[in-house]
């Protein structure tokens, strides 16, 4: 009974007015949105562009060289771009896009990795107190580090990474495997270009890029590769061969057994799988 009393007391006139006004505003705005959405659709736009854009990762990272995903989707549909330019989209989406565009897709998922482990293990030529920018430091006799090809550690790659997957730990850049979307921006910005793109399924990586002879490397870096070739000899699948004093791993043959990791005297080869 009491709640019934409550219902009668309610001033129904105000309730009707408020519902009427807001419903009117909602109707008006809804109509405007829909009319504008239909009238202002970009005529002659290939409908497939929206479907492709739907499947793209949408990180707008620019790694593919286009200004964001919508541009890349348009280029894909017009055939100007390759689906593999975009590292960010995961595999099954790429297959979906390929099917929309009627193409075949068999690419391998990639990931970026820094081919250097120097940082504090590597001696410095001089103490650098200048502008905190790798490219800038690189202009001063190719960086403060004694190793001219190694990572300077001032974080250009870290600041450009759209998903903040790269951190500077002990003055060397380290890529976080699960966050990296392989957009390739860090590979482009590193002045030393020592960030490599390797298949995500890789078990083992080489963390050095110094092409000098063993003796020179020994003087300047505790964890530099001295090109002793033990890894190439011990590998049961002959997946490793030396090229100008650096081991090159053929990820097709490598099974990730890890024998090379234990064999390497300077532990340049790291197990990541």
């Amino acid at each position: 009974m009491e709640s019934l009393m409550l219902l009668i007391q309610i001033n129904w006139r105000i309730v009707i007015i408020s519902i009427g006004i807001t419903a009117g505003v909602a109707l008006l705005m809804g109509v405007i949105i829909m009319v504008i959405a239909n009238v202002f659709t970009i005529k002659g736009q290939d409908p497939r562009i929206d479907d492709v854009k739907e499947n793209l990762a949408g990180a707008n990272c620019g790694g593919c060289g286009y200004a964001g995903c919508s541009d890349f989707a348009k280029a894909l549909v017009e055939g100007k771009a390759e689906i593999n330019d975009c590292g960010a989209t995961n595999k099954d989406n790429k297959i979906k896009i390929a099917s929309i565009l009627g193409k075949q897709f068999s690419g391998e998922e990639m990931i970026s990795v820094v081919a250097c482990n120097g940082g504090i293990n590597c001696a410095d030529k001089f103490e650098y107190k200048g502008y905190c920018d790798c490219a800038y430091a690189n202009m001063h006799s190719s960086g403060p580090k004694a190793c001219n090809s190694g990572c300077i550690g001032l974080g250009n790659c870290a600041s450009v990474c759209p998903v903040e997957a790269i951190k500077i730990i002990d003055e060397v850049a380290v890529v976080d495997r699960d966050r990296c979307i392989a957009c390739g921006l860090c590979i482009k910005t590193c002045p030393k270009s020592i960030i490599k793109s390797i298949p995500k399924s890789a078990q083992v990586i080489v963390a050095c890029c110094n092409e000098c002879k063993g003796k020179e490397v020994m003087d300047i870096c505790k964890v530099g590769c001295i090109a002793c070739g033990l890894c190439a000899r011990v590998c049961p699948h002959a997946a490793i061969h030396l090229e100008n004093n650096l081991p090159i791993i053929d990820y097709g043959k490598c099974t990730g057994c890890g024998l090379c990791v234990d064999k390497c005297p300077k532990n340049v080869i790291h197990k990541v799988g």
Binding site: M29, G30, I33, M34, A37
Partner: peptide
């Protein structure tokens, strides 16, 4: 999908 934000905001 077209009016997703206005509905959530409502």
């Amino acid at each position: 999908n077209k009016v997703r934000i206005p509905c959530y905001v409502l």
